[in-house]
Simulated assay, not measured.
Amino acid sequence: MTRPLGVILAGGAATRMGGGDKCLREIGGRPILSHVIDRLTPQVDEIALNANGDPQRFAEYDLPVLPDSLPDRPGPLAGVLAGLDWAAKRGAEQIVTVAADTPFFPGDLVAQLMAKDAPLVLAASPSGRHPTFGLWPVALRDDLRAALLEGTRKIVLWTDAHGGKVAEFPDDDAFFNVNTPEDLARAEGLA
């Protein structure tokens, strides 16, 4: 089985961080996005970045930058859809999504998601599901587009309606995401 394509979700407004791109804040002397790319690269065949606004701010990463195809930033599902559309053009059957503000996600994320032998799988840890970390079938992209146009915003509502499975990971810290300046300080300590 071929490896899926990877999509890093960075389309949010980062309001709790005071705006800007959370993924460009530094931990360990490097942007969070660099940590995410390093962790995802060995697990997938190619990577794209879902981000809105001027794509030039990510030029140094030499990744395709995929804006949401729907207006008004309807949330992470719009980023998933952008990734699925990109993957369809590349002839891929699946994508794996990861959050751009979560630098410590498991090094075996993709293997564990794919081990569930299901087309749609979300990551979970003892604290609950982590819906921005998932395996998504390209075949459902038109259904997802329709759901978004009808107003669906919650990832788990859509995945549950499609029989989504869960891959359990033992470590909550692996899915620690940087949302606030305090989180950034904690991430620096974890790094």
Rank of each mutant, 00 (worst) to 15 (best):
K116L: 02
G11N: 07
A10K: 11
A187N: 12
S34W: 05
H130I: 10
V96W: 00
A14K: 10
G18I: 11
A123F: 00
F58A: 04
A87N: 02
G151H: 06
S125I: 07
R57E: 15
G83W: 02
G134Y: 03
Q112I: 03
I47W: 01
R39Q: 13
R73I: 05
G11C: 03
D183F: 08
V121A: 01
T102W: 04
E46I: 02
W158S: 04
D142R: 14
P55R: 14
A100R: 09
K116H: 00
P126L: 06
D85C: 06
V98N: 00
P137I: 10
L70P: 07
D172V: 10
S69I: 06
G53T: 14
V44T: 02
V7G: 02
L5D: 02
L77P: 02
D172L: 06
Q94P: 05
A161R: 13
L148W: 01
G18A: 12
P74M: 09
E60D: 15
A100T: 11
K154G: 08
P119W: 06
M114F: 07
A115C: 00
R3G: 13
D21N: 11
A48N: 06
K22D: 10
R141K: 13
I8D: 09
A191P: 05
E182V: 14
M1P: 12
L149H: 03
A187Q: 08
D183K: 10
P103E: 08
E182H: 15
R57D: 15
E93P: 01
D183L: 10
G75W: 03
S69C: 05
G79C: 09
E60S: 13
K154L: 14
K165F: 04
S69V: 11
L149R: 08
A87F: 02
P31Q: 03
G83Q: 07
G164A: 06
P103D: 10
R16M: 06
G18P: 04
A161E: 13
P4I: 04
A161T: 13
S127M: 10
P137G: 11
T102S: 15
G134A: 08
G20L: 07
L135H: 03
A87E: 00
V178Y: 05
L84D: 09
W136F: 10
G79I: 05
R25P: 08
I8C: 12
L109D: 11
E150F: 02
R186C: 03
K22T: 15
L148H: 00
T2D: 14
V36R: 01
R90W: 05
V44M: 11
V138D: 04
L40Q: 01
G83E: 07
L5I: 05
A167C: 02
R129I: 07
R129S: 01
R57L: 15
V121P: 00
R153T: 10
L140K: 13
A124Y: 06
A147I: 07
W86V: 10
Y61E: 03
D54T: 09
G91S: 01
Q94R: 13
Y61K: 04
D101V: 11
V44K: 01
P31N: 07
H162N: 15
K165G: 02
P103H: 10
K154Y: 08
P126V: 05
D108I: 12
T41M: 11
P119C: 12
L24I: 13
T102N: 09
R153H: 06
A187L: 14
A161G: 11
G163A: 12
F175Q: 08
L120K: 02
A111L: 04
A118L: 04
V110E: 03
D45G: 14
E46M: 09
L157S: 14
